[in-house]
Computed example of a mutant assay.
Amino acid sequence: MNKGTQLMMTAVASLGFLGAATATTQAATWHQGTPTALRGHWKDKTINIGKYFGTENVYSYESVRVRKSSVNVYLTQSRGWGIRNTKWKRVGSNAYTITGISKFTKSSPARFTFKRVGHGYVHVYYNGRNIAKATPFSPYFYRVSKNA
């Protein structure tokens, strides 16, 4: 075999190995629980909602607590809502999706997505909808504590 043929065969073989290696890294993996990068207490900016109810000073905020196997959302001191029996996967370089069973219906599946939008800030989505979109609250959640 001459050197040109050997070079051509080596190039074709290396492209084949490269294609096989990239195809296996594309697969998404589901993990039990919640990602450790998101665990903790997240909160958005406290605002005066008294003007919406005709009073002077009523302050409120939304918060999200990500625990080892659950995600809970609260409005100031409400009972809250969320999911349990969670599993998660990374859906991009700055986003995670966490699925689980809704705590209200106890049987229907639900999904939270956390998307990093800045240093220390995330947007939180519930079943594809931003949880602060139709409210007067800020969509930017910041980490208050790493302990939920």
Rank of each mutant, 00 (worst) to 15 (best):
R116I: 02
T46A: 12
A13W: 06
G118A: 15
V58Y: 13
R143E: 07
W88K: 03
G82K: 00
H31N: 15
T99A: 00
L38V: 07
G33T: 04
A27E: 15
V66R: 03
R39I: 04
F17V: 15
I131P: 08
H119R: 14
W42D: 01
W30Y: 13
T36M: 08
A110K: 01
V71L: 09
Y61S: 13
K51T: 13
A13K: 04
N130L: 15
Q6W: 11
L15A: 10
L15G: 07
Q26M: 14
P139I: 06
N127R: 08
A21P: 00
A11S: 10
R116M: 09
A27W: 09
A37S: 15
A27D: 11
Y140M: 12
H123Y: 14
S60T: 11
T105I: 05
F104Q: 13
Y121P: 01
N147A: 13
T10K: 10
S70R: 04
G19F: 14
H41S: 12
G50W: 12
K146S: 15
H119D: 15
A110N: 00
S108K: 11
M1H: 07
R143H: 07
K133W: 10
K43Y: 04
F104M: 09
H123A: 06
T99W: 00
K43H: 09
Y74R: 09
T5E: 13
V122R: 05
T25D: 09
Y59F: 15
R143S: 08
G120S: 05
P109W: 00
W30S: 05
L75D: 11
T99P: 01
A11G: 04
A23H: 11
G50Q: 10
A21N: 08
H123Q: 09
K43T: 11
G92F: 03
K89I: 03
R67L: 11
Y126K: 14
G19W: 06
K3E: 14
L7C: 03
S63D: 14
G50P: 05
N94T: 13
R143P: 01
G50I: 09
G40P: 06
H119S: 15
H119W: 08
W42E: 06
V117R: 09
T5W: 04
A28F: 06
F112T: 02
F53P: 03
A27Q: 14
S145A: 08
A27S: 13
Y126E: 05
R129Y: 10
R39A: 06
S145F: 04
K87N: 08
R129W: 06
R65F: 07
L15H: 05
R79P: 07
G16L: 12
S102F: 02
S78G: 14
W81V: 07
G128W: 04
